[in-house]
Design a protein around this nucleic acid. Structure first.
Lengths: 217, 217
DNA sequence: AGATTCTGATTGAACTGTCAATCAAAATGA
DNA sequence: TCATTTTGATTGACAGTTCAATCAGAATCT
């Protein structure tokens, strides 16, 4: 048949291996966000990517591995985002804490689809050790970093309190407002979510943070 | 524990309708906690309850309705717990806030199985409106109550800040440490979790709360 | 009380649909 | 040509649902 001139069968095999994988991963995020984890099927993922379902198994071997790769992707993306934010932040611990907080609300990361997918993975993580390691709360590097910054700022500002607990509150507050944005029927907006985290920072470090974030000296 | 939920004593036609429903719901919580939401089957629920799988459909019509009833049960239980705690608390807003916080860490509520089940429902709630309404963040009564208490305490103590945001931080910090207890590979214990919430209260209301909780005047 | 009838809880096998995985053939690119 | 990618039909397993048969206990009757 003459398919060369037919625009209907144009877009075959134009993406590289890595691009195809990414395309399937993005479709997976989208399906998880819309249908939830339990109702995510390879068929729906393939359909949304405009591909046949056999391809998912070709590129990922199994559904399980596709899901694991999807979580990996989200995890890498999240880490790259805060590391980039940190790279352009000043050396003062308050500046670095502010950068980390703000990074979590960057439009690239804080997308409805992505938040929903994170949420779904959290829900399943407890029963699947494979996922558990990649979930946010287990990023040891991030936690050590935030712990250290809080300790520095505590010493610098002469604040009372426990650095590890403060770091934990900052982290879980961010996760918590994320969860609110996903699960509430009438949620507040992203700015209000960020303001809520600033309220925590301001309560812990009142001379360095205010309701709008980092206080400029 | 309950003799109802113990499969050891094989109950052949001894339990009432309501008791049987409860038994199946408890089995469902257990299976969700162990296998996750996506891998929860009627067969496994029935096996764990020591009953045939046809019975689950007899009592609940469908798997979907069994899951909804399970969430309902968790939701009712949660509400009953904080309402009971509030009933025996003093009239001072700080005492009532302290009672609400402590209630969330009561051994009856703060059980591995129950936390895991909550977690799983959160993960699916975004894609299922039926669940969404019953998830913690949507308990309007609880939120209005906590908002009001924070507003009172703010006025009473002459503290600066936004009452609604403070109430939100207290709530999401609790949810957040719950999530930590579930999803972290090496989590801290329940006391440390509670202490983390006290740290927030102490930061917001330093003359009414300390690292150990409510300050006695 | 004892026998009979009634109710509805319970079982387990059969049915149905769905989904992940497989594979052979076709299309594509080098 | 040869290797790689893509398709789509097929397969096998498994889960949810249905249903006819069973059975224990309650209610009713004699």
């Amino acid at each position: 048949m003459d398919d060369i001139t037919d625009p209907a069968n144009l877009p075959r095999r134009k993406l590289s291996r890595e691009e195809r994988r990414l395309q399937l991963i993005e479709a997976t995020i989208s399906v998880i966000a819309e249908n939830g984890f339990a109702r995510t099927t390879l068929g729906e993922v393939a359909r949304r990517a405009g591909l046949s379902h056999g391809l998912a198994n070709f590129h990922f071997e199994s559904k399980e591995k596709l899901l694991a790769a999807t979580l990996d992707h989200l995890s890498d993306e999240y880490r790259a985002n805060w590391q980039a934010a940190l790279a352009v932040a000043g050396p003062h611990p308050a500046d670095r804490i502010a950068a980390l907080i703000a990074a979590d609300f960057a439009p690239v990361i804080c997308t409805p689809d992505r938040l929903a997918a994170w949420c779904a993975f959290w829900g399943e993580a407890q029963s699947r050790p494979l996922y558990q390691a990649h979930c946010g709360s287990n990023d040891a590097e991030y936690q050590r970093l935030l712990d250290g910054l809080c300790r520095e700022l505590l010493a610098l500002g002469g604040y009372p309190g426990d650095a590890v607990r403060m770091a934990r509150v900052l982290r879980v507050t961010t996760e918590g407002v994320w969860l609110d944005l996903m699960t509430m029927q009438a949620p507040y907006d992203r700015d209000e979510a960020l303001a809520t985290v600033w309220a925590v920072a301001a309560a812990f470090f009142p001379r360095h943070f205010g309701p709008e974030g980092r206080l400029t000296v």
